[in-house]
């Protein structure tokens, strides 16, 4: 019963119509967008596959000793470039590192870059997006142009300029410093994307009838934004954040590959990739194992993002 006009002619159906919505909800239990999404998610095999991968990687980052008894810098030059074996599942690197042990320990730095870059990107971008979308006019124009400056900068190129500026060739930054720099460079260059997503979601939410109603009733700006609009605008940003987390892990690896990202003494998958790239023709496993880990992890986040988007989008059912 979705025809509004039906009410004119069918006063009987009219009553029935109202009753449908009432009892319909009682029977089916009221479900929110998120509750519905959760039920949808649990039906998807992709959700479980990606979930398992992410949990394993997170465990590696949190308690590496669960996966290997060797430390990250376990080193024996006698085994240099040996292919995978029972004692070292991923073989040894040119410098004699156990690649499996090193990769397990490298998960932490890689994941940290991904998580923090995502958090900063999404927080800054969402805040700017809400402000631009809510206030519109001059504020919107200013923030949008400001965002364009960073959105227009090609990502890798921008990162090269920033990271080389802070670490000119020959300098030796500390581990923490370079991690922070990599995280900040990624964030500075990516926030306009989440701003754009949040901005359009906010503009749509602003037009919703109940938001208009809340304004007409004199609710405060803060209450309108946080109470009424945010729940409607979070979904697209959440999907973006999931996929971005994966993408930033790939970026970490790419920057390290170019020699401007995380570097020793920090161990990350990118660092291992940079170590292995020069020996790729003779012992490809040095590059391919860490690169494979990056790929699988990125894959997991992209799949999770897909699953979450499908679950949140009623149209796709």
């Amino acid at each position: 019963m979705s025809d509004p006009q039906a009410l004119d002619t069918f006063s009987g159906a009219d009553a029935a119509d109202l009753a449908t919505t009432e009892t319909g909800e009682r029977q089916r239990k009221p479900r929110s967008l998120w509750g519905d999404a959760w039920i949808q998610l649990r039906r998807k095999p992709m959700f479980y596959i990606s979930g398992v991968i992410i949990v394993v990687v997170a465990l590696m980052a949190a308690v590496p000793d669960l996966f290997t008894s060797r430390p990250a810098d376990f080193n024996n030059l006698d085994f240099a470039s040996q292919p995978p074996s029972a004692s070292a599942w991923f073989g040894y690197s040119f410098q004699g590192y156990d690649i499996w042990a090193r990769a397990v320990h490298g998960a932490r730095a890689t994941l940290l870059v991904g998580i923090f870059a995502t958090l900063i990107t999404v927080l800054i971008g969402s805040l700017m997006g809400i402000i631009a979308g809510f206030y519109g006019r001059f504020v919107d124009a200013f923030l949008s142009r400001f965002g364009d400056i960073f959105a227009g900068l090609p990502f890798v190129l921008g990162a090269i300029v920033i990271l080389t500026t802070f670490n000119p060739p020959g300098s030796e930054p500390s581990g923490t410093a370079i991690l922070v720099q990599v995280i900040l460079s990624i964030s500075v260059l990516s926030w306009p994307v989440s701003m754009r997503i949040m901005r359009s979601a906010t503009i749509v939410a602003k037009q919703l009838d109940y938001v208009k109603a809340a304004r007409a009733l004199g609710a405060s700006t803060r209450r309108i934004i946080f109470r009424h609009m945010l729940p409607n605008t979070v979904a697209p940003v959440l999907v973006y954040a999931t996929i971005a987390l994966g993408a930033f892990i790939a970026v970490e690896a790419t920057l390290a590959y170019l020699g401007i990202g995380v570097r020793p003494p920090v161990v990350s998958w990118g660092v291992m990739i940079n170590d292995g790239k020069d020996y790729v023709q003779n012992s490809p496993h040095e590059l391919l194992f860490p690169a494979g880990l990056v790929t699988i992890t990125v894959l997991a986040f992209v799949m999770l993002g897909d699953a979450v988007r499908d679950a949140l989008d009623p149209k796709s059912r």
Binding site: A16, A19, T23
Partner: peptide, 9 residues
């Protein structure tokens, strides 16, 4: 008196 049809489709 307009009679509504009781119950639901």
């Amino acid at each position: 008196e307009l009679k509504a049809i009781k119950g639901l489709p």
